[in-house]
């Protein structure tokens, strides 16, 4: 019996995703509460398997090798079928995926093939007194946290938002690397052609990279948000956004904090023009200071704030810009 962690990586660069590392922290916790082993698995990359082995954060990593498929080729059904074959041969209690877009693509396919349950985009996992693994998932925005579990089936599958977790320290003297070949059905129906990097000029102000984050909400104009990005770049801090802002396309979903976005643990969160809806606030945890600026001094954000300043946030942004960008 084991808790298995799926290791996601960028096929073209063979670089493990950071979330594949931080999710090990979640997996170790669940495994120790269940009294089981924890292991890692990835599909078809010796390079990634070796990088992960050298971190010594897992006692054992399986690299599922695919015959006649070069490293760096990714196809969802191919990776999914490989995992399915691997899981069928083992007694896996829990299978965890980091909630990356690639994993959100593979995991439901694997769950259907294994005829088991999957809970998406889990904010938190815990083990209850009956030793049942329970996923906490914010649902339907306002006020609802659903606790979901998977009785009677194996493996119990979860995609977990783990970006706010810390990188687990090395814990094992040795990490055993096991290469295992599986044969999967012909994937000739779909072929990988090529991939390209899209340059993202905002990479250095993504919220999970910083412990000081400015959150922007519907109370800010697009012009103000552009100024905030420039201010954040200059100061070396992060920017986060509410769903209203990412849905409008003013910022990409990489900035989204809360439900369906990221969970962050900043030391300081500056909430500008954010009303404080629960679906956003569930993504901001363990802060030392939350400084809110809002025209409405009865907005729910007050319930979360350590400091409140009543003002049109746009006006304040202009003032800060004058000080920082001049």
């Amino acid at each position: 019996m084991s808790v298995l962690v799926y290791i996601d990586y960028v096929p073209a660069t063979r670089q493990p995703r950071q979330e594949s590392i931080t999710i090990v922290d979640v997996a170790r916790e669940i495994a120790s509460k269940l009294g089981t082993d924890v292991e890692g698995v990835l599909v078809n990359s010796v390079v990634v398997a070796t990088k992960m082995r050298d971190m010594k954060i897992l006692p054992r990593i399986y690299n599922i090798r695919l015959k006649n498929v070069p490293e760096g080729t990714y196809i969802p059904t191919l990776f999914g079928d490989a995992l399915v074959e691997f899981c069928k041969k083992r007694n896996i209690e829990v299978l965890l995926f980091p909630a990356t877009q690639r994993c959100r693509e593979i995991a439901p396919y694997v769950a259907a093939k294994l005829d088991t349950g999957l809970v998406a985009d889990v904010a938190e996992l815990y083990v209850d007194e009956r030793k049942e693994v329970i996923a906490v998932k914010p649902s339907f925005g306002e006020n609802i946290l659903a606790h979901i579990y998977i009785p009677d089936r194996k493996p119990k599958m979860f995609t977990v938002r783990a970006s706010a977790r810390k990188t687990p320290p090395p814990q094992y003297e040795q990490c055993e690397l096991v290469h295992e070949e599986v044969s999967v059905p012909d994937s000739g129906k779909i072929e990988y052609v090529k991939s390209g990097q899209v340059y993202d000029p905002d990479i250095d102000i993504l919220p999970e990279r910083h412990d000081i984050v400015i959150g922007v909400g519907a109370g800010l104009s697009k012009e103000s948000i552009d100024l905030i990005k420039a201010i954040a770049k200059k100061l070396g801090i992060g920017v986060g956004a509410t769903k209203k802002i990412t849905d409008k396309g003013i910022l990409s979903t990489k900035f989204l904090i809360g439900e369906s976005g990221k969970i962050i643990r900043p030391r300081i969160y500056v909430a500008l023009g954010i009303s404080g809806a629960p679906q956003h606030m569930t993504g901001v945890k363990d802060y030392e200071m939350l400084i809110a600026v809002n025209v409405d001094d009865r907005a729910p954000i007050l319930n979360y704030s350590t400091h409140f300043y009543k003002s049109d946030a746009n006006e304040l942004v202009r003032k800060i810009a004058e000080l920082v960008l001049r």
Partner: peptide, 12 residues
């Protein structure tokens, strides 16, 4: 979006 990557596939 989370990898800043565009991929092309040929699908039957």
């Amino acid at each position: 979006e989370d990898e800043d990557r565009i991929e092309e596939f040929k699908v039957k």
